[in-house]
Amino acid sequence: MELLFFYLFAAGIIGASLLVVTRSNVIHAALLLVLTFFFMSGVFVLAGAEFLAVVQVLLYAGGIMVLYLFSIMLMNAEVSVRLRQFHRQSFFTIVVSLILAAEIWWKVLGGGAAYPAFKGFSWTLGTTPGNVEALGSILYTKYLFPFEVASILLLAAMIGAIVLAKRTIDR
């Protein structure tokens, strides 16, 4: 049953992401990317990462993609629908991508790679500590310093975005 749902979500992710990189209309691509994020959140639930699934929907589908859609509204993106969508060297791009896929397949999934057997969750659904509690406690103790650095990074990105998108540019 779990495997069936995984295949369902995986098919949704792959199909929607293929559509994202091939659509000519930017808004269609953005909405399909939202669909991809929802399917990914399903995969996260199957993997026992409930907090990440919620963050995926709240932050990615709800935050980042709304930012994308607002920016698409600010630019006149519908002009580019009628233009050529792909580079002239697209054929070589496909060749390079297939080589990359073969490399990942051979290196990560091939016979040489050995991973330890599944030992069961160290956190389980419905018990204490659950996933959110365990993640919160590890994030605020062991990974406190990277957490603070990430907040500084977000602050810098916010200031950078305001400066870059300011109306008057000093030349």
Partner: peptide, 9 residues
């Protein structure tokens, strides 16, 4: 990333 011309995509 390598194929598309549209920067948003």
């Amino acid at each position: 990333v390598l194929m598309r011309r549209n920067a948003i995509i």
